[in-house]
Amino acid sequence: MNVINSNYWKKNLVLFALLLGLVLYDLTLGSFLIGFPDIFNGVFNYDSSSTEELTVRIFRFPRVVTAILSGAALSIAGLLMQTLFQNPLAGPYVLGINSGSSLLVAISTMSSFYIFGSDLGIVAAAMIGAFGAGLFILFCSVYVKNKISLLLIGIMFGSFAGALVSVIQAYADPNNLKTFMLWSFGSLQGVAFNQLGILALVVAIGVFLSVVLVKPLNLLLLGDKSASLLGVNVKAIRFLIIVATSILTGVITAFCGPIAFVGLVVPNMVKVIYKTTNHYHLLSGSLLGGALLIVVCDIAMQLLLPYFNLPLNALTALIGAPVVMWIIMKKF
């Protein structure tokens, strides 16, 4: 058993080293190249008179940190959903959390309820939407026996919210419509330097909760009845899994918009690469793998800046899908 364990730590180390290297590289990229001394100063010895340091502090550093946090959070949320529903096609959005966010953002940007017009207002609207959707699903999870029913409720709620968004879009002013569309493309630039702390804290809470759930997650693999007979309180664990997913998905959707693809694909890839069902290793793998994927997408985005300005959501699938297909074909 010990030999197998060290195999996982080696893989973690490789992923971490890769991540570190790419993060440092990503920090230099942007509309103009910035060297490492300026990056270091921009974060730690801030001098607002230097353009480079200003750029690092306001744009680069938040962008890269947001990339890491969003990739990690969404992948872990995806892993939780895949284990809860025992379905490799489940992702963090399967419970309809981001549909709630979407709906409230649509209302705040495109309808006459113009209370939250500003940037911070959009974040607030998305948070409230995610929170509301989360509460609704939690409420349902207490009263619904079958978790497949819960999955269906989440999907129906998502469809309903999506339909309402379409209605709002049909009557919206073209400028407002564009604002909403840009939000729905996903962006890593939406977080200010002083907001990074809050984002990191909330993601950390979600990750911590997931770590606490490792043992019950492992036992859920054999089904609810077997898990229950091994001492797992299935209803309570289901509740906590949904809380963790809501926290992770909600906060990322609030600050970055809905980022597609990551939460669905990274946990599956981690399972293929790590070849284990132990969530202790799957969590660390998803964390590193998710962060890696988004950072790679951000690098691609920056490198393509002079030619195209591609939305994040497009890039995640454009880069991710071929990688996934390559891994699958290599395995089979």
Binding site: V212, V214, K215, N218, L219, L230, G231, V232, N278, Y280
Partner: peptide, 9 residues
Amino acid sequence: RAPYTNMLN
């Protein structure tokens, strides 16, 4: 062994 192991299994 789950009923006997700690939180981290």
